[in-house]
Every structure is written in C-alpha cells, then in structure tokens.
Design a protein around this nucleic acid. Structure first.
Length: 448
RNA sequence: GUGAUUGUAGCUCAGUUGGUUAGAGCGCCGGAUUGUGAUUCCGGAGGUCGCCGGUUCGAGACCGGUCUUUCACCCCA
C-alpha cells in the first residue's frame, strides 16, 4: 500500500522538530517565569464535556471517537434506520478529541478544586484537533500553548498576561502588535445601538472591518438586523481610535463605562513598566470564543516593522477573560483569564523571516568513524567516554569506506569528524576534521 | 459544511489536437578514489501517471466519482 497520513496532519523532520521545540521552550520559559504550573489532561474527553461549548459550528468540528466493540449493534435502532447522524451519534460515540485546552481545563478545575490553591495558574502545551477544512496556517492537528489563571478577578492578571505576550515575542525576535479590547465595551455598543439581543452577530461583523472595509460591514450589519440608526451609532464608534474618544459615546451605558474603566486600568498598569512591542486599544477587535466576558487580546505580526512587511498571517496569539466557565460543570463564581499562542503559525512566520537561531538546527558535536574492526572497538570506548562527559557524540556503526562515512558525516551536519584507524587507536591522538573549513589536526582525548 | 484548485520517479517539474517503450534537473546507488565529505567525471537503479469506473481501436491527457493539496467563504490558532 501507498503510505499516507490523514488530511490536515503532518510529519516533522528532525530539523523541524528542533525548531518547534525552540518555540515551545521560549514560551514555556516565560510561562514558568510568571509562575504558571504545568498540567496535563487526556487527548480524549467524554463527548458530553465538549459538546455545546464551542457553539453550533464548533460541535461540527469535533472529532468523535467511535465506541469499541459492536457499536452498531448497540446503536439506537430507530435513529440508525432514519440515518439521522446527529441523533445516532450519542449511541455510537461517547468520547471525542479535545478541541482546545480551555474547556478541558475548566473540567479539570472543577474535578480537582480541593487540590488546587486559588488563584490557580496553569500552563499547557499540547496538541488539539479540529475537523476543519485545512488551509494556510490551519491544520486538523495543531499545538496550543495556553496560560490561564482562575479564581481571581484582579486586572493585574490582564497586565501580566500582556507582559507575557510581549516578552515571548521579544524573545523570539518577532515584532508583534498586541491588540486589546474589552467585551463590556462591545456590550455597551450593542446596548446603545439597540443590538443587545444579537451582539454576537454585531461583533463578528465589525471584526471584519480591516479586512472587507466599512461599506461591506455596514451592508452585512443591515443583513444581520441593524437599522440605519444602529449602523450610524456603530460607525461613530469605529471611527474612534482611543479610549478617550470612545468613553463619551458610552456615557449612557453602565456596562460600557465599566469596560472603559477596566481597560484604562489595564493600560495604566502596562504603561508603568517597560515593554517591547506595540500594545494598542482596538475597538474593532471582537473575535474570541463565546465565553469571553471581559478583556480580549489578539496578537498579530507587526507588518509596519522593518523586514516584516510581507508577512501575511492571521492572529498568532489571543486570549480573553471569562467570568464563568466552570458553572456548566457545577462550580460557580470561578472567573478566569488566559492567553493562547498559536505555535504553528509562529513557526511559519519565523521560517519565512529566517529568524530561527542557527543552533536550533543541529546538536551533534562529534561523529566518530573507524577504518577497521579493531579501530571500531576502540571507537566504541571513546564514544562512550565522550558521552559520559556530556559531549554529544555518535559513532558510525561499522568500518566502511572512508568516502561513504565522510558522506554520512556531511549529511548528519556533524561539525567535527573523528577519524580512527590503527595509528590513532595506538597513540590515543585522534585525527579531528572540522567539516566547515576542511582543517584537520591531531587532538588528544582530553581536549575534546 | 459551500465554491474553486492540485496530484506524473525520493523532491521540483516537463509531457503538443488522445497515438510506439512517459522525460529532465536535483537526489539516491556504484565506480574513478581500500585514510577524507560538500566541488568534478563515468555508469546504474528507480513510475499502478493519486485511486475507482467510463468514453475510445487506443487515455498521463477526455468524462464521472472518490481521496489528497492549495485557496476563498463560514468559523478559527
């Protein structure tokens, strides 16, 4: 048979894995520095844990795991006969692959509440699965890198998570623009525009402003039920570029003013300490999952920064505050806030900018090659001693033609090759060739 | 889920209005070179033309289906 892998999944070559690990390590370093602790949850959750948490669209994108055994024999006969996929599902599948890291985390917090100290700060770097149609920067299996804190409403966390985003992208050598908004401001807008009943429609539409322009946004708003007055109010709103301009427009909305006040406090906290990237208020920023209730973040590559003008990529990180994620699992008053890095997209951007550090590529220091069986026995001793000392060393496993072995060394990207023949085995002085320059000299074992 | 798009050697791609035995570059293997890679020269291997069916005397090419790739929607990282 012809080998293949499922749609939307990928294999990774060693060099790619090292580069991905580099990204994960940078992110992990910052997570730990800010006091977030690692947790793990299963790749499978009970389907009922997942369904209904991501909206109707999300349910369609959930990977369901077929029950073991005679799943059709145990299926609901009527639903099966009617070929009603949605109904028959519950009787043939009880598990699904996790769709994100936040909902499993909510489930985890509820289950382990007695073992956790609140505010509880956790991070997780794990793959998630979505049955989405693959596209540029969109896969069916991809990693998310999440940091969340639950059990506190303090806006200090909004500030610290912004610092964390700022620090990670600075460390990765990427100029980013971190956009901030607050869902309460959007709720206030919906209120004064008379759109409170379909705020979701409104926010999804205005989020497209920079992509499709005002003309189409106003048209789509009309289609989604906004009248001329509402559209006019929204227009004024979107013309505002800073918090001070927005504040008077929301004078009559209590929730809106609350959003302004919260965001102002967050910006004041952020401004009190040095940062590296553009951090902006963006009133059009509306995206985010249904459960966000306060602050929302979205991070994109700063295409105004030198050398990054050509990058076309959606958001590379995001997040938000949710007032109440755990109540659906039976635990009330557990507010949370968190962010998520899109490692796959960051990878694609760093690749395009050629911004990976050189040492993210190869970590072998010495490759030993032996000219005959006696030398090979000697080489095994030497490679063992080098490894015991912590030197990254490898040994070609048989005595072969030097030509062939040198070629292998070249392919392995070995920076130095140790040649062992009868002369070297006797003297304990080894021929060490530096591959980049071609220079070769005799080196004593201690000098490796 | 909707609408497009792609698939030929390990990789990148040619392949004319349907016509004999499907090609190139790179890579791979062997040799020149039994103590020197990346450069040079010589030789060689490698194909179910994504898969299934149809049209035709004849299909890599045309038609249908299906899988996959990429892209735009929807939504999202």
């Amino acid at each position: 048979m012809k080998p293949s892998i499922p749609k939307g999944t990928r294999d990774f070559l060693p060099a790619e894995v090292r580069r991905r690990d580099y990204i994960f390590e940078v992110i992990r370093k910052h997570f730990r520095r800010f006091g977030y602790q690692p947790i793990e949850t299963p790749v499978m959750e009970n389907l009922e844990t997942l369904t209904g948490k991501y909206g109707e669209e999300g349910d369609k994108l959930l990977f369901k795991v077929l029950n073991n055994g005679d799943f059709l024999g145990k299926a609901n006969a009527e639903d099966l006969a009617n070929k009603d996929s949605n109904k028959v599902l519950s009787s043939i599948s009880k598990r699904g692959l996790r769709y994100d890291l936040t909902v499993p985390f909510a489930r985890y917090v509820v289950m382990h509440q007695n073992d956790l100290a609140f505010p509880f700060k956790r991070y997780a770097i794990m793959p998630v699965w979505r049955a989405d149609r693959p596209q540029k920067g969109r896969y069916q299996e991809f990693y998310q890198c999440d940091a969340d804190v639950v059990g506190s409403e303090s806006l200090l966390y909004e500030a610290e998570l912004t610092q964390l985003l700022d620090g990670v992208f600075h460390d990765l050598g990427l100029k980013a623009v971190i956009r901030l908004n607050n869902r309460k401001i959007l709720a206030g807008l919906a209120e004064i525009a008379g759109m409170a009943h379909n705020m979701m429609d409104m926010t999804i539409t205005i989020d497209k402003l920079d992509k499709i322009g005002w003309e189409k946004v106003s048209e789509e708003l009309g289609n989604r039920g906004a009248d001329a007055g509402a559209i006019n109010v929204i227009k004024q709103f979107l013309d505002a570029t800073n918090l001070a301009d927005v504040a008077p427009l929301l004078a009559n909305s209590e929730v809106g003013q609350q959003g302004i006040a919260e965001l102002q406090e967050v910006f004041d906290l952020i401004a009190s300490q040095p940062t590296n990237n553009r951090i902006e208020f963006d009133v059009t920023l509306a995206r985010g999952l249904n459960y966000y209730t306060g602050a929302i973040w979205e991070v994109a590559v700063d295409t105004d920064a030198p050398g990054q003008e050509s990058i076309k990529m959606g958001s590379i990180a995001g997040g938000g505050r949710y007032a109440d994620l755990t109540s659906i699992f039976g635990m009330k008053d557990m507010p949370g806030v968190g962010i998520s890095f899109g490692a796959e997209r960051i990878y694609d951007v760093l690749e395009e900018l050629d911004a990976f550090p050189a040492d993210a590529a190869e970590d072998l220091q010495y490759l030993l090659i032996c000219l005959d069986d006696e030398a090979l026995a000697h080489g095994f001793g030497l490679v063992s001693r080098l490894r015991a000392r912590g030197v990254h060393a490898d040994l070609y496993p048989k005595a072969a033609k030097l030509n062939k072995m040198m070629k292998y060394a070249d392919q392995r990207n070995a920076p130095k090759v140790v040649i062992i023949g009868s002369r070297e085995a006797e003297s304990g002085e080894y021929s060490v060739k530096t591959m980049a320059t071609g220079e070769q000299r005799m080196v004593n074992e201690k000098e490796f």
